[in-house]
Amino acid sequence: MIDAIQQYQGQLLQGLVTTIEVAIGSFAVGFLIAAVLAPLAVYGKPLVRRIVMGYVGLIRGLPELLVIFLIFYGGTVLLTKLAGKYVEVDALSAGIASLSIVAAAYLTEILRGALLSVSAGQWEAALSLGFRRPRAFRLVVLPQMLARALPGLGNQWLVILKESALVSVVGLEELMRKSVVAAGATHQPLAFYLTAAALYVFVTGISTVLLKACDFRLSRHLR
């Protein structure tokens, strides 16, 4: 069993790197989208708020696997029609795009809740000191919002990290896919699935430690 794992350790580590790339890319893009949508959901006009919350509700109501299929196969159909020849969407791009769309919906709700938790008095105090609204938001509201949102953001990061395994269904050679291939080739599924589990736990453990350090640093003023 150990010999089989050693034989495939390079491929497993390569799959782990791909998993982390997908997770980081999806979280980063999703967070950027949510950073735009969350303020619109709170301060936007009624129609804008309804559109944003409609998007959040729609995506949260769909299975992540279905979103992956829609982006991968739908993107392939769209690109094929535009190019006039068969063009398949890259599995990595489809994975990041799909998980970004899903993450953006959940992150929007997390940031919206954190933004609403900052009292109106913080705005009033900043404006009374002569701050314009953009500066008041950046220097006063944003730090408090991020401190309150960090637990939810951290949880969503861990969810995305594990959901990256779903992208293997469209052929992405991430950790889960590498483990399945190695298990099939060696007929030792338990060994490779336990190894994959250990690698996931290792990455999530490091993430948890880093998140706790960030939470301690950002929430000092709240204690």
Rank of each mutant, 00 (worst) to 15 (best):
I59N: 01
Q9M: 15
A4H: 08
K45R: 14
T80E: 03
V22D: 02
T108K: 02
A28R: 02
L13D: 06
G57M: 10
V141E: 07
A28C: 12
L115I: 11
L166Y: 12
M176E: 00
L146F: 15
A38P: 10
I24Y: 05
R50D: 09
Q9P: 00
P39F: 10
R217G: 07
E109D: 10
L107Q: 09
Q156W: 15
L40A: 15
Q156G: 03
G25H: 04
Q188C: 02
S168W: 04
V87W: 08
A38Y: 10
Y200E: 06
A185D: 13
P143A: 03
L37F: 14
G75S: 04
N155E: 02
S26H: 10
G113P: 08
V29C: 08
P189N: 07
G54W: 11
Y55L: 02
A41R: 09
P46H: 03
A83R: 00
I101K: 03
L115E: 06
P39N: 08
F31E: 08
V29D: 12
Q188Y: 14
Q144C: 10
L62M: 15
A213S: 10
Y55P: 02
L115R: 00
L175W: 08
S93M: 14
S207D: 11
P151A: 05
K45I: 00
A104M: 08
V67T: 11
L199N: 01
R220W: 13
L127S: 12
R135I: 00
L32Y: 09
C214D: 03
S219W: 11
S164K: 04
I96G: 01
A28S: 14
S219R: 14
L158S: 12
L99C: 05
I160N: 08
A104W: 05
S100G: 07
